Simulated scan of single mutants.
Amino acid sequence: MPRSRNRHIHRTRSVLLICLTFAFAGGARSDEPADTTDPFAPARARMVERHLDGRGIKDDRVLDAFRTVPRHKFVPEAYQRLAYEDESIPIGEGQTITASFDVAFMTDVLKPVPTDIVYEVGTGSGYQAAILGQLVAEVYSVEIHEPLATQAAKVIKELGYDNIHTRHGDGYLGWPEAAPFDKIIVTCAPESIPPPLVEQLKEGGRIVIPIGSRFDQKVYVFDKIDGKLVGDAVRPTLFVPMTGRAQREAAERRARGEAPEPNVP
């Protein structure tokens, strides 16, 4: 057989072998296509593996939301290199984007389902709202700091979340015209539970809220049963204080020499 024909057959067999190898390799992970357009995708996957799944967050829907939402879009550009570390990051107005595990933990214990209407106190960067936007039907989120409310709304709109509704205001008061809510999540810490939140939570609904003084807080999970909150603390935490009316009421109690009234069941 001529040498040139031997070379041709060899090349043909090599190409066929390479094609088969890629076909089988690709078929094994056909449900997880590589993201070649987002340079942050590998960092996001590592964040989920190390800081969420590796620390006990097992709900597949929650983990998928964290793999999907681009956290780096919600932090100032100067801090984007830290976006997928388990760190709180300054976002302005004395506020931070909550560490990724804490966001995941709060989301996990909220137990969101696709039909939920959720109210969030403290939009902040908008990241928690975006995570919930992947998991529920509608999110209503209020931020007391107007520059943060404006920036969060901008990022949320750019990312195409048309099921997330934001506004500037005092989250203590809730969002009466959108109530009642299936779930409520609070991402700042009052010293007691704002009564409007209890009123606007559906019977059978759930609220996840950090409660306590500046350096003595716990995350509580309550379900509304027969019009009352029933539940308990689930872990210590450290959130920024709830400002606005909640902060004024706490200051007034201290001025009168009264002890904090956490009104925790």
Rank of each mutant, 00 (worst) to 15 (best):
78 A>S: 08
69 V>W: 04
152 A>P: 01
42 P>Q: 13
212 G>W: 04
8 H>W: 13
62 V>A: 10
138 E>V: 03
22 F>N: 11
129 A>I: 04
147 P>Y: 00
106 M>G: 03
100 S>K: 11
5 R>Q: 09
218 K>L: 11
119 Y>L: 05
187 T>Y: 03
30 S>I: 15
86 D>A: 08
40 F>E: 10
75 V>T: 14
21 T>Y: 09
11 R>T: 11
241 P>N: 14
229 L>Q: 06
203 E>S: 09
63 L>Y: 05
143 E>Q: 03
257 G>E: 09
232 D>Q: 05
144 I>P: 08
255 A>G: 07
225 I>S: 06
147 P>C: 00
172 Y>V: 01
120 E>F: 00
64 D>R: 13
9 I>K: 13
258 E>Y: 14
26 G>A: 14
66 F>M: 13
248 R>I: 07
174 G>Q: 06
112 P>Q: 02
219 V>F: 06
245 R>C: 08
18 I>H: 11
16 L>A: 15
92 G>F: 07
95 Q>Y: 05
67 R>M: 08
127 Y>H: 08
101 F>D: 04
218 K>V: 12
8 H>V: 10
58 K>N: 14
90 P>L: 07
179 A>Q: 08
56 G>I: 11
19 C>D: 13
188 C>A: 12
26 G>I: 14
148 L>N: 02
221 V>L: 03
225 I>E: 09
199 E>S: 11
93 E>K: 12
70 P>Y: 09
